[in-house]
Design a protein around this nucleic acid. Structure first.
Length: 694
DNA sequence: GTTCCTGGATG
DNA sequence: CATCCG
DNA sequence: GAAC
């Protein structure tokens, strides 16, 4: 008898590519033939199936049948659900963890899990990594495993040695928190968490390093009587060290210097306050938060959850407006730092109907509407289907009418289902097939340290190809400060003028080893955004919605990750980073663009200009019909200043009550602002937009 | 009862 | 140009 | 779901 074929259909395996003379890890066994050969589907960017001899197949990376094992983690992951994106997953995870820790959950949580958590053998970070590390199959992890230090970051062998040492081992680092706009509390906590993960100590005194935000006032440091041997650095030192995976030397560019003018000019009152009072009041806030308002926090979490369920459900059901309302309500409640009294709920901008819903949740513990959605099988199917990149509500519903009930159904009918909601049933589009291929991987959130490892990997690839792009800014959820991210966004800025296409192509080519697919519609998307009537290509940007190989730590399986590469010139950098830092659902982006519009500007992905709009009434924004010259902005702060909005650091790019108030304000004064713009256009520099001709 | 957001891709 | 998507 |  021939040797037993060690593979099954569906297994993911290594495949040898004769043409490129190397192993690829994206093979998927389709058919196993008797004569010692197999048919393998491979090449993510351009999937093909091919019959290959067995010796060209290497090793099973992931078995075909996702076995319904007794694995506790699988159960937890399943119970958790991930239908609403990584941010959602992170919050659910946190709540599950808290609930388990408090030993409140008895029925729907495994006693083993509770045991693990309540014996305080896991902190939240370890809990997270435990949940998403798959290797030790159906064995419940032994307790000592959690007492060991978390697995060391290891990206490639090149950094292996350095990675063996934690970045901040032996450092005592004190982060000063000036309040105001210089650094938010969230950011401080975030930095401290990563600091500890990398072996450092977040110190209150006797620090080796003092981290001060760039805009902090001089008095903050001088009042502290810093010892001479203490390094006083900016937070950029901390961030860059984390990103590059090594402790950077304290070069002049990282040394903190007070900015005398700034500290006088900045109107924010908190900056003037004494640091000790700041810290004190901070602690006091936390105290009240944890003490008397623990119930309020609980209710808030519930309300957010119910609203989110409804928002997601209405969206997949096709009512985007209603979905939008729920999303806004959810954000308002989540952002508000008030108690949950009716008075407060009103004051944060909730409409009476939504306040009523909050009450309902307080009474019953749930929202009837949300409960109905949860019981609705169709909604579950739609949520599952829309997880595929390139599949939205419309197509998902069309598929539902075709009798599709799950992603598995889609897999079995890729060539017969329609690729558009209205079109013929002629098979999925290329993008959808790719989305389908990676859908499981994309469901698993990326933690911050993996984002950093991938970032470092990208830099190395570029370096190896001798490309120097001075600026690569990680944006997206990572920049906003989320603990878990759906993917990553790298904004890459080249100096000089002119179209960025060529440089972008070269850069992407250098990513060949890690970039496995492009989810952009076109082969290589050239998305040139331009001022109407202006041919200068300098202010264009180009985006590649890519898929890259992840950088797992030891013991973790490799997963493919969403990684967007966005290329631009330095002039447009602040606009591009603003755009791609966004917030979930793009809600924040839309609101600031509306404010800009109401004040007579057109704020695009890559530039800003004066704009004359038609059909602007009330808080509605008309269509751009004439545009003026582009307005130069040095950095993101300048953009906020230009549209008359108080600056918000990346971790505060959310729609909250204050932002809505500001939109309202802009709407009120809009008619006047727009008249002024019109006046400016009377005399000179009229640039009619093509779209207004019809 | 109708409209309500941004901008771009797609066919 | 309308529809769909992130 | 909310504003005209």
């Amino acid at each position: 008898m021939c040797e037993q074929v060690p593979f099954k259909a569906g297994d993911r395996v290594y495949v040898w590519s004769a043409s490129r003379r190397r192993w690829f890890d994206d093979g998927e066994i389709q058919v196993v033939r008797e004569q010692g050969s197999v048919v393998v589907r491979f090449n993510n960017a351009k999937p093909v199936a091919k019959e290959l001899p067995l010796r060209h197949i290497h090793q099973v990376l992931r078995p075909a049948t996702a076995k319904k094992s007794q694995d506790l983690r699988s159960a937890v992951r399943q119970a958790l659900g991930t239908g609403h994106g990584p941010k959602d997953a992170a919050q659910r995870l946190k709540r599950l963890y808290e609930a388990t820790k408090a030993a409140e959950v008895s029925t729907d949580t495994s006693p083993q899990l509770k045991d693990l958590v309540t014996r305080q053998l896991m902190d939240f970070d370890k809990f997270t990594s435990w949940l998403y590390v798959e290797k030790a199959a159906n064995v419940l992890p032994k307790v000592p495993a959690f007492e060991e230090p978390p697995p060391k970051l290891q990206c490639t062998k090149q950094v292996g040695e350095k990675a063996a040492r934690k970045i901040f081992a032996g450092c005592r680092i004190q982060i000063l928190f000036p309040g105001g706009n210089a650094m938010s509390l969230t950011r401080k906590e975030l930095l401290e968490a990563r600091l500890r993960e990398e072996g450092g100590v977040a110190a209150d005194a006797e620090a080796t390093h003092l981290v001060v935000a760039l805009g902090a006032p001089r008095s903050l440091v001088t009042d502290l009587a810093v010892a001479p041997d203490v390094e006083v650095v900016t937070d950029a030192w901390l961030c860059d060290s984390l990103l590059l995976g090594q402790r950077l030397p304290v070069s002049p560019r990282y040394r903190w210097r007070p900015e005398p003018e700034e500290s006088v000019e900045v109107p924010a009152a908190p900056l003037q306050k004494d640091i000790k009072r700041q810290i004190y009041s901070c602690k006091a806030d936390l105290q009240t938060l944890l003490g008397s308002t623990a119930d309020a926090e609980d209710l808030r979490a519930k309300v957010v959850d119910e609203f989110r369920t409804c928002s997601a459900a209405w969206a997949v059901r096709g009512d985007k407006w209603r979905s939008w309302q729920y999303k806004k309500a959810e954000n308002l409640v989540a952002q508000a730092r008030s108690s949950m009294s009716v008075q407060d709920l009103k004051s944060i901008g909730l409409t009476p109907k939504f306040v009523q819903k909050c009450l309902e949740i307080r009474e019953r513990g749930y929202l009837e509407q949300a409960e109905a959605f949860r019981k609705d099988a169709d909604i579950h199917t739609l949520l599952e289907l829309t997880r595929i990149h390139g599949v939205g509500p419309a197509l998902a519903q069309a598929w539902l009418r075709c009798g599709v009930r799950s992603i598995a159904d889609v897999r079995s009918r890729v060539d017969t289902l329609p690729g558009t909601a209205t079109g013929a049933a002629t098979g999925l589009t290329k993008v959808q097939r790719l989305g389908l291929r990676f859908v499981e991987d994309f469901q698993v959130p990326v933690c911050r340290s993996e984002v950093e490892r991938i970032y470092a990997q990208v830099l190395r690839q570029a370096q190896a190809a001798k490309i120097d792009a001075p600026t690569v800014v990680p944006c997206g959820a990572y920049r906003r400060g989320d603990a878990l991210c759906g993917g990553l966004t790298l904004v890459i800025s080249f100096p000089g003028d002119g179209a960025v296409e060529e440089a972008a192509a070269a850069y992407l080519k250098a990513m060949d080893d890690i970039l496995v697919a492009d989810l952009s519609g076109a082969a290589t998307t050239a998305t040139a955004v331009r001022v109407p009537g202006d041919d200068d290509p300098t202010d264009s940007a180009q985006a590649c919605l890519g898929v890259v190989r992840g950088c797992p730590v030891d013991g973790e399986p490799m997963r493919y990750r969403r990684c967007d590469f966005v290329f631009c010139r330095h002039n447009s950098l602040p606009f591009v980073t603003l755009q791609w830092t966004g917030s979930d659902g793009g809600l924040f982006n839309r609101e600031i663009k509306r404010i800009a519009a109401l004040r007579g500007f057109h704020l695009s992905h890559t530039y800003m200009c004066k704009a004359d709009r038609e059909g602007t009434r009330g808080r509605q924004v008309g269509e751009v019909c004439r545009a003026g010259a582009k307005i130069f902005c040095e950095d993101e702060r300048a953009i906020f200043a230009a549209i008359g909005l108080p600056y918000r650091p990346p971790e505060r790019r959310e729609v909250d009550a204050e932002l809505l108030r500001l939109v309202e304000e802009a709407a009120k004064e809009a008619p006047e602002a727009l008249r002024m713009v019109k006046m400016e256009f009377q005399g000179s520099d009229l640039r009619p937009c093509a779209s207004s001709v019809s």
